[in-house]
């Protein structure tokens, strides 16, 4: 008994760590590796025969005429969500970093979208943006900014030849959902900047503009990098908004890669091609992901 206690005491660090590692291997690592295996087989629900097809699934996926569009949508979605959401988050964080009363309350208030179920977000925005009964269209028409209601979620015209209106609309919804999370991260970064730096700069006669680019920006650059990497990867993987608001429609206009994987697997039951598509997604994010992992390990270890 005494020996057993000693054994536990000597390996406490491992004993505490093992359950979490095992859980991660079980839920994340094994299924990820297995998805790579499945991507090389013709694996469909109703076929008992599941032959090896080599790169067949990848060829099928890449030759699908919709693939380029869905891929392009995902890239536009990721970049716009990141830039618009990040800029909004940073500006609001800078405003909230000043010592005015009420900032704790506002910080919490702005985070509420982050705790709202995506299903509910979709219901609200579908109503807000419906062509006929939308209060936003009502407002814009009252102000005489537009003559006829905009079909935010069903319009197939392209702005500037690349941006479809529904895609931009779901990006805007996504910004509403995610800007505050970035805001909180930026705010934490801003609070590490000693106020004396700004005082010294003011004494030296630096303008607000100079103060931002010479003090604020360099100080929070590491946080900006972290947030950009993490949010970039998360938005690339994002599923809920596109699936729940528009189901990827009209005609693939808002379809993202993750939605296509989900539909291919759990609506069409073609698991082989779905896995191939998800492996392609993985390959795209592998470089930024490895970069982020290395940074985190270096930082913490």
């Amino acid at each position: 008994m005494e020996a057993f206690k000693k054994l536990i005491d000597r390996h406490t660090g491992y004993i505490l760590l093992f359950p979490a590692i095992l859980a991660s291997l079980f839920v994340h690592v094994y299924p990820t590796v297995d998805a790579v295996r499945i991507s090389f087989f013709d694996f469909q629900l109703l076929h008992t025969n599941r032959p090896f097809v080599g790169w067949g699934n990848f060829v099928t996926v890449l030759q699908d005429p919709a693939f380029i569009q869905v891929f392009g949508n995902t890239i536009i979605w990721t970049i716009l969500s990141l830039i618009v959401g990040g800029a909004t988050g940073l500006i609001v964080a800078i405003f909230l970093n000043r010592p005015y009363p009420g900032r704790g309350f506002l910080r919490a208030l702005f985070l509420v979208p982050w705790v709202t179920p995506p299903v509910v977000v979709a219901i609200i925005f579908r109503s807000l943006l419906s062509q006929t009964f939308s209060p936003i269209n009502g407002l814009l028409m009252n102000l005489h900014w537009i003559d006829s209601p905009i079909n935010f979620l069903g319009n197939l015209d392209l702005l500037g030849g690349i941006f479809s209106v529904p895609l931009l609309t779901i990006v805007a919804i996504n910004v509403w959902c995610t800007f505050s999370f970035m805001m909180v991260m930026f705010l934490a970064g801003l609070q590490t900047i000693p106020p004396e730096l700004y005082e010294a700069a003011r004494v030296d006669g630096a303008s607000k503009h100079q103060q931002f680019w010479r003090i604020t920006w360099p100080s929070i650059l590491p946080v900006v990098e972290t947030v950009a990497l993490l949010q970039g990867i998360w938005q690339f993987n994002n599923f809920n908004i596109s699936y729940l608001v528009t189901h990827g429609g009209p005609l693939h206009a808002t379809e993202l890669l993750s939605v296509e994987v989900y539909n291919e697997a759990f609506n069409n039951f073609r698991f082989g091609t779905a896995a191939a598509l998800s492996v392609i997604m993985m390959l795209i994010i592998l470089i930024p992901a490895v970069f982020y992992v290395r940074r985190s390990v270096k930082h913490v270890a």
């Binding site: 299924p31 990820t32 993490l230 994987v261 492996v279 270890a301």
Partner: peptide
């Protein structure tokens, strides 16, 4: 522990995998 770096890498990496990727096998 000797697993420290490995496990940090593992936990960070699992946050980055496309959430639909492990879904099928899982």
């Amino acid at each position: 522990t000797r697993l420290r770096k490995f496990s940090i890498a593992l936990f960070v990496f699992t946050q980055l995998i496309p959430s639909v990727l492990p879904f099928i096998s899982y």
